[in-house]
C-alpha cells in the first residue's frame, strides 16, 4: 500500500524535553488515519510536524524524516508556505476569520493566487463549500459574517477553507471536540466523503470517533507509537497490553 506521508524515526524536542521518540508511521493514501492516546502523549505534536506548524515554536528541535510523496518536508529546500498548500489543517476550535463566509473560503486561493478571475474564484468557493456539505445551508448568505454560523457550521466552513486550496492531505486536530453529537456526525460523514480526494489524519480523544471514521489507527503513549494498525483490528483485538488498557478504559 502506498503511503502518502511516511514518517521515519521522528524525534521532537521542546528545549530539553523530548516529546516524540523515534516515531515511525505510514499514512496510507486516500485513507483516514486516526491518532489516539492520552493527553500529552505527543499525538498533536506529531500531527503538527506533518505541516511544520511547530516551526514557530521557540526552542524546538526535530530529528528524523517526514516524507510527503517521498520528499522530506524538513529538507532545507522546502518552502513551508508551499508545504502548507499541500497539507491543510483544521483545528480543535472552529476558528473562522472574522469576515464573511465567502472571504473565509476565498482567503487561501487569494494568498496563493490560485484563480484567474472573479468567476473562477466564485467557483472555487462554491465547490469547496459544496464539498464541505455547507453550500445548501448558506448559499443565500455568503456575504454574512462567518462568526454568525453555528459551531458545527463554522467547523465545516473551516474544512471548506482548508480544501479550497486543494491540498492533498488534511490534518485535523480534534475537530469535533467543541461540537454537539449531530454536528459531530455531520463532520464524520464529511470526513468519510472527503476520503475520496484527500488523505486525512485526525487526532481525537473520542475513541468511538476514531473507530468510526478511520481505516488506520495509531496509539500514542508518552511519545512513542505503541501500536498502529487497521482500525477494526486495533479496536477488537489490540496486540499490546497498553493499547488494550487504554481503549477499554483500564488505563492506569
Amino acid at each position: 500500500m502506498p503511503f502518502k506521508i511516511d514518517v521515519k524515526n521522528l524525534s521532537l524536542f521542546y528545549g530539553d524535553k523530548q516529546a516524540l521518540f523515534k516515531v515511525s508511521l505510514g499514512l496510507p493514501k486516500l485513507q483516514t488515519t486516526a491518532l489516539i492516546g492520552p493527553s500529552g502523549c505527543g499525538k498533536s505534536s506529531f500531527l503538527r510536524c506533518l505541516n511544520r506548524m511547530n516551526d514557530s515554536v521557540p526552542n524546538i528541535h526535530i530529528d528524523g524524516k517526514v516524507l510527503l510523496d517521498g520528499n522530506d518536508i524538513y529538507a532545507p529546500s522546502v518552502d513551508v508556505v508551499e508545504l502548507r498548500s499541500h497539507v491543510g489543517m483544521v483545528f480543535q476550535k472552529p476558528n473562522p476569520f472574522p469576515r464573511s463566509i465567502y472571504e473565509n473560503v476565498a482567503y487561501g486561493p487569494r494568498i496563493h493566487k490560485l484563480f484567474k478571475n472573479k468567476s473562477a474564484l466564485d467557483e472555487i468557493v462554491e465547490t469547496s463549500l459544496t464539498r464541505a456539505g455547507l453550500w445548501e445551508e448558506i448559499k443565500d448568505r455568503l456575504h454574512q459574517p462567518a462568526t454568525r454560523l453555528s459551531g458545527g457550521q463554522q467547523q465545516r466552513l473551516c474544512i471548506a477553507r482548508a480544501i479550497a486550496i486543494s491540498p492533498e492531505v488534511i490534518l485535523m486536530d480534534e475537530p469535533c471536540s467543541a461540537l454537539d453529537p449531530i454536528a459531530t456526525a455531520k463532520i464524520e460523514e464529511l470526513i468519510d466523503e472527503l476520503r475520496e480526494k484527500f488523505t486525512i489524519v485526525i487526532v481525537t480523544h473520542n475513541l468511538q470517533q476514531a473507530a468510526r471514521v478511520s481505516q488506520k489507527t495509531a496509539f500514542f503513549h508518552s511519545g512513542h507509537i505503541v501500536e498502529a494498525g487497521e482500525t477494526g483490528e486495533l479496536f477488537t483485538m489490540p496486540k499490546d497490553e497498553r493499547t488494550q488498557g487504554y481503549i477499554t478504559g483500564r488505563y492506569g
Binding site: L207, Q208, A211, F235, T236, M237, P238, T243, Q244, I247, T248
Partner: peptide, 9 residues
C-alpha cells in the same frame, strides 16, 4: 459502555 477489545469480546 460501548465496550471495545477484550470487553467487547
Amino acid at each position: 459502555r460501548q465496550p471495545v477489545a477484550y470487553d467487547l469480546r
